[in-house]
Simulated assay, not measured.
Amino acid sequence: MYTINVDKECGCFRRSGFENNASFQSNDDALIKANEMVKHMNDKFCGKHGFSFVEDGNTFQISMTAPLATSGCCGGGHCS
């Protein structure tokens, strides 16, 4: 059995309909679903943080990463 675990459920995750600790019969099915989840979470969630995953034995651990969006600055040098 292979499991996808989300270590911190943010509000966007709780509203998403995704299941934490979802189980799969095959490694490939779990890997495909973990990739889909992380892509969706990074593309469609609010952008206050990013997501990535690592495979640890039979578990795919999805974790929050550094914020995707910063203070609204585009980096053009004119915001400061």
Rank of each mutant, 00 (worst) to 15 (best):
1 M>T: 10
1 M>F: 01
3 T>I: 12
3 T>E: 01
3 T>Q: 07
5 N>F: 04
5 N>D: 09
6 V>A: 09
6 V>H: 10
6 V>Q: 05
6 V>T: 03
6 V>E: 03
7 D>C: 11
7 D>K: 13
7 D>V: 13
7 D>W: 03
10 C>K: 04
11 G>S: 07
11 G>F: 02
12 C>Q: 05
12 C>D: 03
13 F>W: 03
14 R>I: 09
14 R>M: 14
14 R>N: 13
14 R>T: 13
15 R>P: 01
16 S>W: 05
21 N>Y: 07
22 A>R: 15
23 S>G: 10
23 S>H: 05
24 F>D: 06
24 F>Q: 00
24 F>V: 13
25 Q>H: 11
26 S>W: 02
26 S>F: 00
27 N>E: 15
28 D>R: 00
29 D>C: 03
29 D>E: 05
30 A>S: 07
31 L>S: 12
32 I>M: 13
33 K>E: 07
34 A>T: 00
36 E>D: 11
37 M>G: 03
38 V>Q: 06
39 K>V: 12
39 K>G: 11
39 K>N: 14
40 H>S: 14
40 H>G: 07
40 H>I: 13
41 M>A: 09
41 M>Q: 05
41 M>W: 08
42 N>L: 05
42 N>D: 07
43 D>N: 15
45 F>V: 12
45 F>W: 14
47 G>W: 01
47 G>P: 14
48 K>I: 00
50 G>Q: 02
50 G>L: 01
50 G>Y: 03
50 G>C: 00
51 F>K: 13
53 F>V: 06
54 V>F: 00
55 E>W: 00
56 D>N: 09
57 G>A: 04
57 G>S: 09
57 G>D: 08
58 N>W: 07
58 N>Y: 03
58 N>T: 04
58 N>V: 00
58 N>M: 02
59 T>K: 15
59 T>L: 13
59 T>C: 15
60 F>W: 06
60 F>D: 07
60 F>A: 12
61 Q>R: 15
62 I>L: 07
62 I>C: 13
63 S>I: 14
63 S>A: 05
65 T>W: 03
65 T>H: 10
66 A>T: 14
67 P>H: 08
67 P>W: 04
68 L>H: 04
68 L>K: 08
69 A>R: 15
69 A>C: 14
69 A>H: 12
71 S>D: 15
71 S>W: 07
72 G>F: 02
72 G>W: 04
72 G>T: 00
74 C>I: 09
74 C>A: 14
77 G>E: 01
77 G>R: 04
78 H>W: 12
78 H>Y: 11
79 C>G: 05
80 S>M: 11
80 S>V: 02
80 S>K: 13
